[in-house]
Simulated assay, not measured.
Amino acid sequence: MSLRSLHFGFQCGALQENTTVLVQLTDPHIVAPGRLLMDRIDTPALLASAVASVRALQPPATAVVLTGDLVDRGNADEYAHLQRLLEPLTCPVWLMPGNHDSVAAMRLAFPDHTELRPVNDEALSPYVLWVREVAGMRLIALDTVVAGAAHGSLCEHRLAWLDRTLGVEPQQPTIVAMHHPPFATGIGHMDGIGLREGFDALADVLRRHPQVERVICGHLHRPIVRRFGGTIAMTVPSTAHQIVLDLRTDGPPAYRREPPGYALHAIVGGTVVTHGANVGEYGPAELYA
């Protein structure tokens, strides 16, 4: 049997037309029309390319989640621009904030996005916390934002909410989405604005709920994976610029125009398999001879 036959046979056996594909886009840092991020990076054009890439996926995306830093300054004109850029997506699109976002402005800009509505609990109402079902997968958004700060935190109220929410469906494969990753990465300047409080308590919650297949995060603008709380925690490339891979403790804050990217979290064989995708033109697909 040829390599091509083996490859094709594996694909047909593992991925069916009804495969659940959750796409994760993160950190697009959209600016107002006519502007560039830091006067250098065309983040709207880059997000438009990522959206076109998602639209071309086969099988099609079941849903898309954006894990924070949706815009750069939290302004209404930026969110209006983001809304237009996301319009070509025909599947459900769910939003959550990062440290560059304004929850109040997000809620005003996306009134039809029920996931942004406050939880009916005074202690939790400032945060964006939600649960969605994705054709055999459960997705939980856990807000890590500290208003007005770059770093993240998890208070006892949010952690208790997560614990209760996970306890409702203990058998269903689940993904927990956050903006700030709950672990140090070795990139010093980013770790300084990472999740400063609540990571140990979060690990304890996750260990009590083994159905959690992934903790998916943004913020780092790089693909990074670590074992955490009995599951796999990971960050995903930005649809815009990437943070320079520099593991020196005193490495300076820097970015590079590496290819933008995103992640696909697919249910394959009853479990979650994560794929990385780059955005850009790399020529047509070519069959193995």
Results as ranks from 00 to 15, higher is better:
16 Q>N: 06
120 N>I: 04
195 L>V: 04
233 A>I: 03
255 Y>C: 13
285 A>C: 05
15 L>C: 07
92 P>I: 09
205 V>I: 13
183 F>P: 00
41 I>A: 06
148 G>E: 10
185 T>H: 04
279 V>P: 00
194 G>S: 07
226 R>C: 11
167 G>P: 04
246 D>T: 10
134 V>G: 02
160 A>T: 14
90 T>L: 08
20 T>C: 15
110 F>R: 08
73 R>L: 13
209 H>G: 07
143 D>I: 03
68 G>V: 01
191 D>A: 08
137 M>T: 08
258 E>N: 13
130 W>A: 11
52 A>C: 09
40 R>H: 09
89 L>V: 09
44 P>S: 08
200 D>S: 13
195 L>S: 02
268 V>F: 02
275 H>G: 09
93 V>Q: 02
57 L>M: 15
90 T>A: 13
97 P>N: 14
56 A>P: 10
111 P>V: 11
40 R>Q: 14
193 I>R: 01
193 I>K: 01
262 Y>C: 04
138 R>W: 06
56 A>R: 15
126 P>G: 09
239 T>M: 05
179 H>L: 07
78 E>F: 12
122 E>G: 02
31 V>P: 01
279 V>N: 03
7 H>P: 00
28 P>H: 13
133 E>G: 12
227 R>W: 06
87 E>N: 06
118 P>C: 10
171 Q>E: 14
221 H>V: 06
168 V>C: 05
204 D>E: 15
62 T>E: 08
224 I>G: 00
33 P>N: 10
273 V>T: 12
115 E>A: 12
93 V>I: 09
